[in-house]
């Protein structure tokens, strides 16, 4: 509970910091709109030109794009400390300052940044979701709402874990940090579209290794009423747990990396 309070308090303060430069903040928020708007425009143009992919129609495609966009940018907004700041903290030695305080390392890193500029990206994603629901005539039920909430929440956990890998790379001073981007940003780009349109190696990469398909696509397909691989209904609630499992594994690796960091110094 105290951790939540600490997080909220940090967020409040960091928001204040951002608003110290209102003009820059405004421009950057606008820039985010241009970015995510561009991405969504690509989806619109693709649908305009190709109509559909396999069994997925326009509404479905908007829904898949929307759920990924909302999940990814909610994470980037509220988890900015981990998704954006972490390697920087390690390289500049600010991780030492964090170690000097009586709180968990990940908690403090999470509390170190917020990115309210992403609000426009989240808005674009939401618009896409609404368009998708309308076109695909989604009938909302309590269970579907639950599946959606679970997918977004565990999707966020999965994305955070992917960025923690980047921090681990940094601690071992691996130079090829961009490699992780293939999983995080690559996963976002690939999984804006349903996983089953891709050839097997990509399907394996984003199902078994970075399980975006399990966390987001299985519940999304269930909500759209076109179950992925014709899997039974309950999988829509169980598969997203892969995100939590993934986070757990990465957390263990992170603990090990911290022990390494503390034995080698910076």
């Amino acid at each position: 509970m105290k951790t939540v309070r600490l997080y909220l308090r940090s967020m409040k303060m960091l928001m204040k910091c951002q608003l110290e430069y209102p003009f820059s903040f405004f421009l950057q928020t606008l820039a985010q709109l241009v970015m995510e708007g561009g991405e969504m425009m690509a989806v619109i143009l693709i649908i305009d030109r190709f109509d559909r992919v396999n069994q997925w129609e326009a509404g479905d495609l908007f829904f898949f794009f929307g759920i990924m966009s909302v999940t990814f940018y909610l994470t980037e907004c509220f988890g900015r400390g981990i998704t954006g700041n972490f390697p920087y903290l390690i390289r500049t030695g600010q991780l030492d300052t964090i170690l000097l305080r009586p709180r968990g390392v990940l908690t403090q890193v999470l509390c170190s940044a917020v990115d309210p500029r992403r609000i426009t990206c989240i808005a674009v994603g939401t618009v896409s979701l609404i368009i998708g629901c309308n076109l695909a005539r989604v009938q909302w039920t309590g269970l579907k709402v639950l599946a959606m909430a679970e997918a977004v929440l565990l999707g966020a956990v999965l994305i955070l874990a992917l960025f923690v890998i980047e921090a681990i790379f940094c601690i071992y001073s691996v130079k090829s940090v961009e490699l992780v981007n293939a999983l995080s940003y690559g996963g976002r780009s690939a999984c804006e579209y349903p996983i089953d349109i891709y050839p097997r190696p990509l399907r394996i990469l984003f199902t078994a290794i970075a399980p975006f398909a399990l966390v987001l696509h299985v519940p999304a397909a269930y909500i759209l009423g076109k179950p992925l691989y014709a899997w039974p209904e309950w999988t829509a609630f169980v598969c997203p747990l892969a995100g939590a499992v993934f986070f757990g594994l990465i957390y263990l690796a992170f603990q090990k990396a911290m022990r390494f960091y503390r034995s080698t110094g910076s």
Binding site: D51, N54, S176, L179, Y185, G186, A190, L202
Partner: peptide, 27 residues
């Protein structure tokens, strides 16, 4: 850093091509 960047970029390329292949297969 460059090696990581190249691999990342290749993965992005493959993802996009896979997408366009699927789209072309339909229409």
């Amino acid at each position: 850093a460059m090696l990581g960047g190249i691999i990342c970029q290749v993965v992005f390329g493959l993802i996009l091509i896979a997408l366009y292949r699927a789209l072309y297969a339909g229409k």
